[in-house]
């Protein structure tokens, strides 16, 4: 049997979920033996998301144009997509800017009103991705197969989610240890 093609992506999140993933410590060695890491900010150098991915952990909410394009690409090329952590599942802290209204209101607040030296709006089309008006959870944009809440999900929760998948089984996302937010 071919090894499972495994990926992780980092959208609008703080990378804490990926740090928690690294907290898997020695189990990472078992994981590495069971999967091919084909795309990941912490495990692979590729810059374009490859075809035919079996499992992908998605950290972060959808907050800008780049997140949006990447998640469509990821969904198209991935069998099983996991919303990884509260930002992916609820939009969490990144979405706290939604209360301010549109992206222009947010940029004005952050870069003009609070900018103490040379206040100016960031504007580099093609380099700095445009903010979306509203930060949303992943499943509001593309279908999601498994939801793994937590800010961040603990290493135990990550392992309990991934381990059954390695055996071709679906994890049971139930109970405090698996689905408590925060």
């Amino acid at each position: 049997m071919d090894k499972i093609k495994f990926a992780t992506v980092w959208l609008a999140g703080c990378s804490g979920c990926h740090m928690s993933f690294l907290d898997l410590d020695e189990w990472l060695i078992d994981l590495a033996a069971a999967v091919d890491v084909v795309f990941s900010p912490v495990g692979c150098d590729l810059k374009t998301y490859p075809e035919g991915v079996d499992v992908c952990l998605v950290e972060g909410a959808i907050a800008n144009q780049e997140n949006l394009e990447l998640i469509y690409d990821v969904r198209r090329k991935t069998k099983l997509l996991i919303s990884f952590g509260d930002c992916a599942v609820t939009a969490n802290v990144p979405a706290m800017r939604n209360m301010l209204g549109s992206s222009s209101a947010v940029l004005k607040r952050a870069y003009l009103e609070l900018g103490d030296v040379t206040p100016q709006l960031p504007d580099e089309p093609g380099i700095v991705p445009e903010l979306l008006d509203r930060v949303v959870p992943v499943h509001e944009v593309v279908p999601v197969d498994i939801f793994m809440p937590g800010c961040p999900p603990s290493a135990d929760r990550i392992r309990a989610t991934l381990e059954p998948l390695l055996k071709g089984e679906m994890p049971v996302m139930e109970g405090r240890s698996m689905i408590k937010f925060g």
Partner: peptide, 30 residues
């Protein structure tokens, strides 16, 4: 509800019932 930065995180009855009813995400738009 941003549990990760909430004063009641881990001691919240709303969180508790979310676990109790098996809510792993909201199907309603925030």
């Amino acid at each position: 509800h941003v549990c990760s930065v909430c004063v009641a995180n881990n001691n919240c009855e709303l969180q508790d019932v979310a676990v109790q009813v098996g809510m792993d995400h909201s199907r309603f738009t925030y």
